[in-house]
Design a binder for these strands. Structure first.
Lengths: 339, 339
DNA sequence: GGCGGACACGAAAACGGTTTCGTGTTAATA
DNA sequence: TATTAACACGAAACCGTTTTCGTGTCCGCC
């Protein structure tokens, strides 16, 4: 087992000081061409690589960014993560991922752990519990310490920081408008509890589209599902309501279950009931019929979030101006709707 | 912007030495009960948190583990990652993820970067290019430095380290046997190029099952697809062969495309053609018909990999004994096969 | 010959902790 | 009273870098 070689080793072997070695390797003007060449050659020979940790301690910069997401086995978050990782990697940053598992406590613990020097900044989407409790003290603490933070998708107004979201309200509005345009009269909304910022916005878009067309917002056409442990019988019962001839689902999973259960009733998708689902994930593409979906462009969101964060970290950006970037969602039309 | 408080601050305020503060906070016997209480109270008051980087430098232990995977937007790898993250988190480790994107160069660069002190050990699945080139110098270098390494799923015999895999050969064997048992005569294999260790093993299992039943291995029934940019027309042509009444696919995506194209020909799944796919991912569950799948238990694999790595890192394990753990795949029967 | 300034390098502090060892004080013991 | 041990704490080295600030040598110049 070869042991890691350090500046000290090089210095000793070459009979120069550590400072000289350090400077020589950074091609400093201070050192003569001769010695520089000697030292660099020797360092290469011994395959010297500087110790990241020591550099981090010295610079107070780790070149690590912390990503905290509710779930990794979730297509949308995964694509966002890919965007982050890609951009960060290009910029020489590594990514430390923590999964909050929708738990407030885990979110807090992980953040506090990482905030103590391990990372230069955070990118995160709030856990369900955090949004439910509306307790953002841990975020406040981090920003107070001057650690840059970028929130994406599941955000809150109570924290001043950069954010990247999609135009949830408008996307829902346009989706519903499209359903109305194709002659649908009973448009259902399959959503989560209201405490999710995105669900709230989507519901507003849904409402606005209906109102704009003088259609009543009927609470019987709105189904709220818990964010875990999906209850199929509730969905099935909900769709027994034969007023419903279309549904907007706030995520892919809800859409898949709904479509399947509707089909089980002997109804045809899209003719009897049309479907549009948020998140253009892998399921939408392979479903049958394939699902018309609202693409959230996760990878792009991730990339933007990473760019914003790194700009803050590297101080190119004037510290206290916070921006919310809005990524435009797009409707991908497939077989679960008609024109 | 509050600045981070250090031992030095505490020491100055309390008019004791840094060493005393340090010891007091670790509840050292050396320090009197009185001073300990004072110091601890004051530290709590000021919300002192030790700097992770400084501790890492001193201990030469980062409590970070590096995970290098070919792709994160891939259900199997994602579930493995979840297993790793969960276990690591419980043990107080953080996870740094790098995505090799199936590229040899990225894999090498990322490993070298992380190997310089950023992590205590690696968990990885080889990239496609690495398996193609059969160049494992970067792995060798890392293990030579005494950095623990655990390979999973895509492994190689050329590196001595801990490994965790599924019984690919046997799983394929059993799947094919099951198809034969249900009366299938023309069993196809939809696979990747041979340089993937897993595909190779699966093909062997496929062969063994056929031979055992005196069925010929017909190369016309084996379709090799590139690992990216799936060619639908090739698949469609392949299934024009009406000898085929069943297919084993080495991954979910291949299975989904195949099933869809077969159905498009007006054939019935499972009656005309039965399907079994490796990787019991989200698609298998939601496909129609739902796909009979070989569950690789990614989360469990991740957990085992993390356990093995952390044991090595913490030296509970005698250094030079390497183990390969085999996770048993299980067949999940769904609608794409008949009994 | 003395002075000033390049030039090339080294000493040492610093980052924020941990840990070993030394030391001054007190009290118990011979 | 002198010795000793326990006690409570501080000084300093160390982890591996970077960086500031000397400093010694040599040369050119007046």
């Amino acid at each position: 087992m070869k042991q890691k070689i350090t500046l000290k080793h090089l210095a000793r072997e070459l009979e120069v000081s550590i400072s000289t070695v350090s400077k020589a390797l950074k091609n400093s003007e201070e050192i003569s061409q001769d010695t520089k060449e000697k030292i660099q050659a020797f360092a290469k020979l011994l395959n010297y690589k500087p110790n990241n940790i020591a550099i981090s301690l010295k610079n107070k910069r780790t070149k690590n960014i912390g990503v905290i997401i509710p779930d990794i086995v979730h297509h949308f978050f995964t694509t966002v993560f890919r965007g982050i990782e890609k951009y960060a990697n290009e910029k020489g940053y590594n990514v430390i991922v923590c999964v909050s598992d929708e738990s407030f406590d885990k979110e807090v613990i992980n953040m506090e752990l990482l905030a103590n020097g391990s990372i230069d900044g955070f990118i995160m989407a709030l856990s369900a519990e955090t949004q439910l409790k509306k307790d953002y003290a841990h975020l406040k603490e981090v920003t107070d310490q001057g650690i840059p933070l970028v929130l994406f998708d599941r955000v809150t107004d109570e924290i001043a920081c950069d954010k990247v979201v999609i135009n949830d309200e408008e996307a829902a509005y346009l989706a519903v408008k499209k359903l109305i345009g194709s002659g649908r009269k009973g448009i259902a909304l399959v959503t989560t509890e209201d405490f999710f910022s995105v669900s709230k916005a989507r519901k507003e878009g849904y409402r606005r589209a209906l109102k704009e067309h003088q259609m009543e917002v009927n609470e019987n056409l709105i189904l709220k599902l818990p964010y875990r442990d999906i209850d199929e019988t509730a969905i099935s019962r909900f769709f027994d309501n034969r007023e419903i001839d279309a549904a907007l689902c706030v995520n892919e999973i809800f859409a898949m279950h709904s479509m399947r259960l509707v089909q089980k009733k002997g109804l045809n998708v899209p003719h009897d009931v049309s479907f549009i689902g948020f998140t253009d994930g892998i399921l939408s593409k392979y479903a049958s019929p394939s699902l018309t979906a609202i693409a959230q462009h996760g990878e792009k969101m991730g990339e933007i979030a990473a760019r914003m964060l790194i700009e803050k970290v590297e101080g190119e950006n004037d510290g206290e101006r916070f921006v919310t970037e809005i990524v435009k969602a797009t409707l991908i039309e497939r077989e679960s709707t008609i024109n």
